[in-house]
Amino acid sequence: MAEPFVVFGASGSGSVPIEAALSLLELPYRVEESAPWEGQEAANRLAHINPLRQVPALALPTGELMTESAAILIWLADAYPNARLAPALTDARRPAFLRWMMFVSSAIYALYWIADSPARVIEREEDHAATRARLFDRIARCWEQMGAQLQPGKYLLGEDLSVLDLYVATVSRWSPGRRRFYEVAPGLADIVRRVDADPRLATFWTQRFPFTQGWER
Rank of each mutant, 00 (worst) to 15 (best):
185 A>N: 00
212 T>K: 14
184 V>L: 04
205 W>C: 03
194 R>Q: 04
32 E>L: 03
114 I>P: 00
137 D>T: 05
190 D>I: 00
22 L>V: 02
87 P>N: 14
140 A>D: 02
26 E>D: 13
18 I>M: 10
113 W>C: 12
138 R>C: 12
165 D>Q: 05
61 P>N: 09
214 G>N: 02
146 M>T: 05
137 D>V: 04
211 F>L: 10
37 W>M: 10
82 N>Q: 14
169 A>W: 09
93 R>P: 03
148 A>W: 03
209 F>E: 06
191 I>E: 03
81 P>M: 09
10 A>N: 11
154 K>W: 04
215 W>F: 15
110 A>N: 15
28 P>L: 01
191 I>C: 11
99 R>C: 14
151 Q>E: 12
104 V>F: 04
102 M>A: 13
145 Q>D: 12
132 R>N: 01
33 E>S: 14
51 P>C: 06
165 D>N: 03
102 M>T: 12
144 E>R: 12
53 R>C: 06
207 Q>I: 11
82 N>K: 13
210 P>G: 03
18 I>W: 09
191 I>N: 02
23 S>C: 13
162 S>Y: 12
214 G>S: 01
3 E>I: 11
202 A>L: 12
118 P>M: 07
168 V>L: 15
176 P>M: 04
32 E>Q: 09
101 M>K: 06
54 Q>C: 10
75 W>E: 04
60 L>V: 08
107 A>E: 15
149 Q>S: 15
119 A>W: 13
1 M>R: 08
59 A>H: 01
170 T>M: 11
13 S>F: 04
41 E>N: 08
194 R>L: 06
89 L>W: 12
215 W>N: 08
49 I>T: 04
104 V>L: 10
38 E>F: 14
165 D>S: 04
180 R>V: 07
74 I>D: 06
69 S>G: 13
114 I>H: 07
26 E>I: 01
23 S>V: 13
5 F>L: 01
4 P>T: 02
78 D>F: 10
216 E>Y: 01
93 R>L: 13
46 L>C: 08
46 L>F: 11
136 F>A: 02
149 Q>D: 13
172 S>F: 02
36 P>G: 06
132 R>I: 06
39 G>K: 07
107 A>D: 15
96 A>V: 05
147 G>I: 00
118 P>E: 04
125 E>R: 08
90 T>C: 14
211 F>C: 04
39 G>C: 09
189 A>L: 12
181 F>E: 00
71 A>Y: 07
209 F>T: 03
89 L>D: 10
75 W>Y: 14
123 E>V: 13
88 A>N: 12
